[in-house]
Design a protein around this nucleic acid. Structure first.
Lengths: 140, 140
DNA sequence: GCTTGCTCCTCCAGTGACTGGAGATGTTAC
DNA sequence: GTAACATCTCCAGTCACTGGAGGAGCAAGC
């Protein structure tokens, strides 16, 4: 009936088969029951869980953060503060990246616009070498 | 004179010693001359180059893209026609990156706006779950 | 000259988050 | 029955580092 193979789940979640097994290994997805022939048999809820993981990955969350999020999702009575903090931390990082990229884009646009001249007056190196242009997010 | 050790360069550029050697190995930094005792002796220009690399890495560029950028910025005499294509290609990449990061930011902002309560009425997990909320996953 | 303590050298293994392949087995269609 | 495909486990490789082992260079103090 609603038993899905790993291939079905991969198609529906948009996550590759090997990656699904990898997530299982990392504890993000519970190990599903197996068929007589040792194939994984998934519950449709696994698709939702994988879509959750995929979306979180696209948003830049690391697997440990996603594991936290999933644990919180499993305990709806828990305070929201922890999930909120994770999101806020990501947000700060994303905003810093956008600021830095906007500065770089300006320089690249200048270069692309430089017409018949040389690159001598392009300031990409300065732009990227200058600390003051970025919000200086060291590591994540 | 102005010969710097790898430690000096690491301190001034904010890149770790091992990473500097790694960049040398990958061809992003030219192999510097050595002292009698086999230590690397850097020119101050190496610091600028490393700061450039560091910043570009923080912006999410891969090492091959950074090599392109360095070639572009490091040859001011190069005819613009040759540089133009690289610049435009990098620009397209930067713009795509900004677009996806902006979408991401909107979502994280929405997520971070969750009112203080329990995860039951927190939107973080809902927005990450897309439409198919991770409603009551049997244990975490 | 000797020791202490730091820096630096090379080489190699490990990380995170996958990705892809080998070789074997299960399942399905004709 | 057999061909084609899906899946299994295990393992190696990717990228961009990071850290450690084991050894050598070097400057200062005794």
């Amino acid at each position: 009936m609603s038993d899905l193979t790993i291939g079905d789940v991969a198609r529906e979640s948009g996550i590759k088969i090997n990656t699904i097994r990898f997530y299982e290994d990392r504890g993000l997805l519970p190990a599903p029951p197996r068929s007589a022939g040792n194939r994984r048999l998934y519950d449709p809820a696994a698709v939702a869980r994988l879509r959750f993981i995929r979306h979180a990955r696209e948003l830049g969350f690391g697997l440990p953060a996603i594991a936290d999020l999933l644990r919180l999702a499993g305990h709806p009575e828990a305070p929201c503060a922890a999930a909120d903090a994770i999101a806020r931390q990501q947000l700060a990082e994303v905003e810093a990246r956008i600021r830095s990229l906007s500065a770089l884009r300006a320089e690249l646009q200048r270069m692309a616009d430089c017409g018949a001249g040389s690159t001598a007056d392009c300031h990409v190196l300065e732009s990227l070498g200058d600390h003051s242009l970025c919000a200086g997010p060291h590591e994540s």
